[in-house]
Design a protein around this nucleic acid. Structure first.
Lengths: 133, 133
DNA sequence: CAGCATCCTGAGAGATACTG
DNA sequence: CAGTATCTCTCAGGATGCTG
């Protein structure tokens, strides 16, 4: 505050220091949350995940699971049977996260319509050939 | 539930239907939340934003602001003065969102250490040349 | 001051095929 | 069943330069 400004102390925000961004970097991937949701009910097998999550590829399922495992959000349990059986389960930490996400879910559902309208209006305003005002 | 399975009704999760993913698509961008945070204290000018947010480029600031405006999360007020003065402010909807994000912030701060450790351990396990077990 | 236009790079993600 | 291995492509995001 060494320089007299407008009065609002616009404090510096650092991307690396911001905790929200940390979570997002972890969860923002297209599939991460979907996996968290699908696994929230209890341990679930690879193929079950694959079928539960609409549109996910084998590759992305594997990659995302690996990342979640790395962060300690899911556990991977291999049952040495034939055929192989691998179960994925949320860790307590991930379950807490899942709970925190409910706040966002709630927000999304309360405002999804408003936002859609806002978009439509904005797009209309900026369409090629709007008469403005 | 027409097919008898393990008992866990792994319900189908659709990326387009999942409300959490909707929010994320809106907010997951590298800069969106940072702008929300920086603007949370009150109306803020373009250049103030630029300086508040460490590392953001003019281009990304503009783009992200446009998207937020499109979704009705920020308002853009142009003061017809010389030099120009443009102020961005959060809409009530965005302020609610900002509040919901506190849950995530909290989660991140409570577990950031654990997660970092988990990563380190995982990476150690998978380093080239681990003796396993 | 507050942008827009342009060029460029790389990580995320899709498609496809092969295997312990 | 539960993965790995490539190959490709899109697009978010960085760098830079120009303007009302």
């Amino acid at each position: 505050m060494s320089r007299g400004n407008t009065g609002v102390t616009s404090q510096v925000v650092n991307a690396h220091a911001c905790p929200v961004r940390e979570v997002l970097d972890r969860v923002a991937g297209k599939w991460s949350v979907l996996i968290l949701v699908a696994a929230a009910h209890g341990p679930i097998r690879f193929t079950e995940l694959e079928r539960s999550i609409e549109g996910i590829s084998r590759r992305m399922l594997t990659l995302t699971l690996r990342n979640l495992e790395r962060d300690g959000l899911v556990t991977r349990t291999v049952h040495a049977t034939v055929p192989p059986k691998v179960e994925y389960a949320l860790t307590p930490v991930a379950q807490e996260l899942h709970a925190s996400l409910l706040g966002l879910t709630d927000w999304a559902e309360r405002h999804r319509v408003t936002i859609a309208e806002s978009r439509a209006a904005y797009d209309a305003r900026h369409e090629p050939g709007h008469t403005d005002v």
